[in-house]
Computed example of a mutant assay.
Amino acid sequence: MQPMAINNQRRKLLKGSFGAVALSPWLTACSSTAHEDKKASLISCSRTANGRFGAVVADSEGYPIHSISLPERGHGVAISPNGELAVAFARRPGNYMQLFSIKTGQSYSITAAMPNRYFYGHGVFSSDGLTLYTTEGEKDTSEGVIGVYQLQGTQLIKVKEFSGFGIGPHEVIRFDDTTLAIGVGGVHTKGRVPVNLESMKPALVYLSTETGKVLESVGLPDHKLSIRHLSLTGDGRVLCGQQYRGEPEDGVPLIAVHRRGESLQLLNAEPEEWLRFHHYIASIAVLGDHVLATSPRGNCYGVWNLATNKLVEVVSLADASGVVVNNSDSDQPQWHISSGTGRTINRTEHGDVTSHQTNIMWDNHWSKVPQV
């Protein structure tokens, strides 16, 4: 496939990106040389009080180092394995992805979705960092697509697509060097409005990176549990967090764990405890024997013991957003948790907590910068 000629949609995105450079004072300040002594550790999309959007490179406490202007609201961020480049994805149904330098905060190419496609907000690099896999959909049908892009200098060039695995893919992670795991939500939408709730077919899908072939696909008993966000355990299991599309009073399990070749196994909590999460899991991350899941709608996060699949604790946190595990920046591995109010929390598996108040309205996900 040849590189696409620039089209009107791409021109609008470029204009919007450059037109949003006049940011609030803290965004301007966090790209200054005064922050060069900080180590880049975390990246997330963000919002500002004046309604602008960006991606922020931050230290391990969530304090900003660089900011990258985005033309519209962002969602997930993919980071190259060598820790040099990152890609911010538009929130679904999104029209752009923005490549930038983690070290300098410099924006590189902005890639517009093809005219009959949109982005679902997530992507992941191959283990060698030369290929980017993105979740996309057909506008008219929400038929799922994995876009395959080659990194050529500071350009992302689409070379092929994988399809035929389901409707409404959301997060994609690298299961191993030849396999992707995809949270397929099953929801056909017009814009952000669902139109097939009675017939939706969510699934956790494993896909070959070489051929695009479906290697395995598993679903949940309740077809209104839309599989969305993923995390990988140290022993090769996949955690998936769901959005429930059923009745408001239903307290249904929102997290499941899967080992290849077996069925999905639900994590346990009482119905009233599940209702605390308001039917939505935003981010999940595994540390040791425990998984932590956030819910901005529920203003809380929960911790489960994976040895027993039982809920250990629910903690109130206004607009609880991203969570990611840090195994490298401290003596003790810990979760980093963000919130839309600017509060950040570092928490060990044993429950030791430190918190900080930043001036950033963090969006739903955090990504960890590898220390290489």
Results as ranks from 00 to 15, higher is better:
V193S: 10
R10V: 13
T154P: 01
R11F: 12
T294S: 13
D250V: 12
I110T: 15
S31F: 01
T48F: 03
E270A: 15
H365V: 14
A181L: 04
V303F: 10
F53S: 13
K201W: 02
Q332G: 01
P221G: 09
D128K: 14
K190P: 00
T341D: 13
V57A: 06
T178W: 06
A307C: 12
T178D: 15
P194D: 10
A22P: 05
S263A: 12
E210T: 08
G105A: 04
N346Q: 11
A78G: 07
T294Q: 10
Y63T: 12
G74H: 02
K160E: 15
H290K: 15
R297T: 08
G298A: 03
T33V: 13
E349C: 14
S355R: 15
Q371I: 03
L225G: 04
L232W: 12
D319H: 08
K310S: 09
S339V: 01
V257F: 01
S17A: 11
G51V: 01
P71D: 05
V57M: 05
F125T: 02
Y118N: 14
N268Y: 08
R11S: 10
G251N: 07
G298K: 05
R343D: 01
E249Q: 08
P169E: 01
G298Q: 04
L230W: 09
S231L: 03
G322Q: 03
P333V: 03
Q332M: 13
G183F: 09
H122Q: 04
E313W: 00
Y120E: 14
N364Q: 08
G105K: 06
S263K: 14
M361E: 11
P333C: 04
G168E: 09
K12E: 11
L267W: 06
R73D: 00
C30P: 04
K158I: 09
G83P: 03
R237S: 14
A55T: 08
I79Q: 05
